[in-house]
């Protein structure tokens, strides 16, 4: 039996890994047909076309999520 800190660590690491996989999948989903079609409108937000805004938006969000996730991964992967 591992001591509680190790269990917590490995569980948190597993959680982080799961999030990574989810985000990856999510990323694929968000940048493809059906979802992409939603924003494929000749409309614009503040002058900038919707699609541009959307793609720019999720890109930035994705970067931010990457930033946070890698922090978590780094914290719990010290033992390796």
């Amino acid at each position: 039996m591992l001591p509680p800190e190790e269990i917590h660590k490995s569980r948190a690491a597993a959680r982080a890994k799961a999030w990574c996989l989810i985000c990856f999948g999510l990323g694929l989903l968000l940048t493809n047909y059906p979802l992409l079609q939603i924003f494929n409108q000749p409309t614009s937000l503040g002058g900038i076309p919707t699609m541009v805004v959307y793609l720019t938006g999720i890109w930035l969000v994705g970067i931010f999520v990457l930033f946070r996730l890698t922090r978590v991964l780094g914290h719990y992967s010290d033992k390796d």
Binding site: C20, F24, G27, L28, T31, G62, I63
Partner: peptide, 16 residues
């Protein structure tokens, strides 16, 4: 864009 979005998406799995 996909040329650069792709790397961003796969970046989630880079660590592994």
């Amino acid at each position: 864009l996909p040329i650069y979005l792709g790397p961003t998406i796969i970046a989630f799995l880079w660590w592994f």
